[in-house]
C-alpha cells in the first residue's frame, strides 16, 4: 500500500511538473522519462533476474526501427507504428532469449553483445531501407496519433509520462507478483529454484522477453516523440547506458531506473555547462557514487530506511 502511494505519487508529481517547468527542463524530463522506461525494462532482467545483458540496444533499436520503417515504408501513423515497434521488440527479444539463455554469466554477456552488434551491422547493411548511419527524420504522419501531434512539446510530455507510467506500474506489479518473486529467487540461487519445481528456463525466457519488449516500447516512443531514427541508437553505448542508469539508481528497485536516468542526465548536462571535460566530471561522480552507495541511490535508501521498498 505504502509502495503504491509512493509510485503513484511520483506520477502525480511528474504530471504537476508539466504545468510548472520551464521549457528547457520540461523537454529534458520528457526525454528522461522515455530513457527511464528503457532502463526499467533493463532492470527487470538485470536487477530482478540477475542476468547482465550487454545487448539491450538491440531491443531499443528493434522498437525504434519496427516503428520507423513502418512509418516510412508503410505509411502508418504513430499508434499502429508504435504497436509494430513493440511487437518487433517482443519477437527479437524472444528469439534472442532462446539462443542466449543457453549460456550464463560472462558467456551470456558476450552472446548478447555479439547479437546486438550483429543487429547494428544489419541496420547499416540495409541502408537502402534504413538510411544507414545517417538515419532518417520521421515523416510527419508517424508523429500523429488520433489527431494529436506528438511533436508538440506538451503532447510529447504527456505521451512520455503515459509510457513511463505504464512501465512503472507494470514493473511494480510484476516484481510483487508470484512470477516476479520467482525471478528474484532465480537471481539469488537458481539451482534452488529449480529444485523447488520451477522451470527456471521458462521464467528467464519470459523475463528477457518482457525486458526486451519494454525496451522496444521505449525505443519506438523515442523515435516518435523526438522525430529521428538512427543507427547510433543500436550501437553499444545504448547497451551500456541502461546498465549505468540502473546501477546508479539502484538495481532491483522499481524507482531506481528513473532516479538513475535523472541523475546521470543532469550530471552530464550540468558538467558540460561548466567545462568541455564534462565526461571527466561525470566519471568522477560515478566513481564516488559506486564507492559510497554501491547498491545505487534507491538501493541505499532501501538498506537504510525502508527494507520493504520494492
Amino acid at each position: 500500500m505504502k509502495a503504491l502511494v509512493l509510485h503513484l505519487g511520483l506520477l502525480a508529481v511528474l504530471l504537476a511538473l508539466h504545468f510548472v517547468l520551464p521549457a528547457y527542463h520540461h523537454g529534458n524530463l520528457a526525454r528522461i522519462m522515455v530513457l527511464a522506461s528503457f532502463a526499467m525494462g533493463y532492470n527487470i532482467l538485470f536487477g530482478y533476474t540477475g542476468l547482465l545483458s550487454l545487448g539491450h540496444a538491440l531491443f531499443f533499436a528493434a522498437g525504434m526501427y519496427g516503428m520507423g520503417l513502418s512509418v516510412q515504408h508503410l505509411g502508418l501513423s504513430a499508434g499502429p507504428a508504435l504497436l509494430l515497434g513493440v511487437l518487433s521488440g517482443a519477437v527479437v527479444s524472444g528469439a534472442l532469449a532462446l539462443l542466449a539463455l543457453r549460456t550464463s554469466g560472462v558467456a551470456f554477456m558476450i552472446v548478447t553483445l555479439m547479437f546486438a552488434q550483429a543487429g547494428y551491422l544489419t541496420i547499416l547493411h540495409f541502408s537502402e531501407w534504413t538510411r544507414g548511419d545517417e538515419g532518417f527524420v520521421l515523416a510527419l504522419a508517424g508523429r500523429m496519433a488520433w489527431g494529436v501531434d506528438l511533436s508538440d512539446p506538451n503532447a510529447r510530455y504527456i505521451a512520455a509520462l503515459m509510457l513511463f507510467g505504464i512501465c512503472l506500474m507494470l514493473s511494480l506489479w510484476l516484481v510483487r507478483a508470484p512470477f516476479g518473486r520467482v525471478l528474484v529467487a532465480i537471481r539469488e540461487n537458481e539451482e534452488r529454484v529449480r529444485m523447488l519445481g520451477y522451470d527456471t528456463f521458462a521464467h528467464k525466457l519470459a523475463a528477457l522477453t518482457i525486458s526486451g519488449t519494454m525496451a522496444a516500447a521505449a525505443g519506438a516512443a523515442y523515435g516518435i516523440l523526438f522525430g529521428y531514427v538512427g543507427a547510433s541508437f543500436a550501437a553499444v553505448q545504448y547497451s551500456i547506458l541502461p546498465l549505468l542508469y540502473v546501477l546508479l539508481g539502484g538495481a532491483g528497485t522499481v524507482l531506481g531506473p528513473f532516479i538513475g536516468t535523472l541523475f546521470m542526465f543532469y550530471l552530464i548536462d550540468l558538467s558540460s555547462g561548466i567545462t568541455t571535460a564534462y565526461m571527466l566530471i561525470a566519471g568522477i561522480a560515478l566513481v564516488l557514487l559506486t564507492l559510497f552507495a554501491p547498491q545505487g541511490i534507491m538501493g541505499e535508501l532501501r538498506r537504510r530506511l525502508w527494507k520493504g521498498l520494492p
Binding site: 528474484v184 529467487a185 539469488e188 540461487n189 539451482e191 534452488r192 529449480r194 529444485m195 523447488l196 519445481g197 520451477y198 522451470d199 527456471t200
Partner: peptide, 21 residues
C-alpha cells in the same frame, strides 16, 4: 523441475536457502 512437480521434494545437504530473502 518436472520431477519435483510430480510430487518429490528435495532438501539439500549443503544448506541452500535464499540467504537474502
Amino acid at each position: 523441475h518436472r520431477r519435483i512437480a510430480r510430487g518429490m521434494a528435495y532438501t539439500f545437504q549443503i544448506t541452500s536457502v535464499f540467504a537474502r530473502l
